[in-house]
């Protein structure tokens, strides 16, 4: 594996390898001194053309725990608009000597373009509406661990609820769960679904909520209201929100997930802390371990220990 750009560019063996590596990284993170020398002398540049403090911190922490050096380059929209191109930025930073770029960009495809202008490894930390493979890996890892499904997700029922159309998380999560054998259903009104969906779809959460093993809620962005995609947030919550009534219908052992940050009162009206199946906090913790696994897989040498 030279880059990590999208889940649909991985084969199932790659996914299993990364998830197994994550097990090792979780073990590293539980040590009193959670640090290994695997990336010593390696430099990872976080190139964030779109603000995402959580993802950036997660990658920075992962790099440091592997003893790699971190450069962080946060480009505000305004300075990009002043004329420096993606190519100039990538080539300039590459000239300083980096082994990997972690790229977040508002435009779908930007990490693929970056690959043409550098010989360093490129990790996609989220591009446009397109892909967010480390989020998908950490979500798959979370389910694998919580449900003890190390062999795969055959027969597992996953519902992804919300604004699938504009969500890189939904695309990547749907792909990784399907690749591991799960049955994926996208739950949203047609206005929030891609015109051609990769998975089964439904616009009735109530019809399926009692049957799912994992309920994955997406963030509902307020600006979608102005685009006439849903009439108003109240109606959205009525039809697609995780309300107390719906939470009560979840089957025993069903997991509730969310990539964060949550819109309380919109996609979820119950306190996730009071939901027995909520693993939202575990998702964040696993994020560091998954990113360590990815960095190690792309750049590491020697053993994990």
């Amino acid at each position: 594996m030279k880059h990590l750009l999208a889940i649909d560019e991985l084969d199932v063996a790659d996914i299993h390898r990364l998830l197994e590596l994550t097990d090792h990284m979780v073990e590293v993170n539980q040590r009193p001194n959670p640090k290994v020398p695997a990336l010593r002398g390696r430099t990872v540049c976080n190139l964030f053309f779109e603000v995402s403090t959580r993802t950036r911190l997660s990658f920075e922490t992962a790099t440091r725990r592997l003893s790699g050096d971190v450069m962080t380059f946060t480009v505000s929209e305004s300075s990009v608009n002043k004329g420096e191109s993606l190519r100039d930025t990538v080539e300039t930073v590459a000239a300083m000597g980096v082994d990997a770029f972690v790229i977040r960009h508002r435009s779908s495809g930007a990490p693929w373009q970056a690959c043409r202008w550098t010989t360093a490894a490129v990790i996609n930390a989220g591009d446009g509406w397109h892909a967010h493979p480390t989020q998908a890996l950490l979500d798959a890892y979370t389910v694998r661990t919580e449900l003890g499904r190390t062999g795969g997700f055959d027969g597992l029922r996953l519902a992804i609820v919300g604004d699938v159309k504009h969500s890189r998380v939904a695309r990547s999560v749907g792909q990784i769960f399907a690749a591991l054998g799960a049955d994926v259903v996208l739950v949203a009104p047609a206005t929030l679904l891609p015109v051609v969906a990769e998975h089964a779809t439904s616009d009735r959460l109530d019809d399926i909520i009692g049957d799912v093993d994992v309920l994955y809620l997406l963030r509902m962005q307020r600006e979608r209201m102005s685009e006439a995609l849903v009439p108003n947030l109240h109606e959205y919550t009525e039809r697609f929100g995780l309300t107390a009534e719906r939470a009560a219908r979840l089957s025993d052992g069903a997991l509730v997930m969310h990539p964060g940050p949550m819109n309380r009162g919109v996609e979820i009206t119950v306190d996730p802390a009071e939901l027995p199946g909520s693993v939202i906090g575990h998702q964040v913790a696993n994020g560091v371990a998954v990113r360590m696994a990815v960095l190690f897989d792309l750049l590491g040498s020697g053993g994990v220990a």
């Binding site: 649909d8 779908s108 495809g109 591009d127 446009g128 509406w129 397109h130 892909a131 890189r168 695309r171 891609p194 015109v195 051609v196 969906a197 990769e198």
Partner: peptide, 15 residues
């Protein structure tokens, strides 16, 4: 073009 490919690539479609 708005269709299967743009849906997969997460790119706004031109119907």
């Amino acid at each position: 073009h708005e269709g299967e490919c743009c849906s997969r690539l997460g790119v706004p479609g031109w119907p």
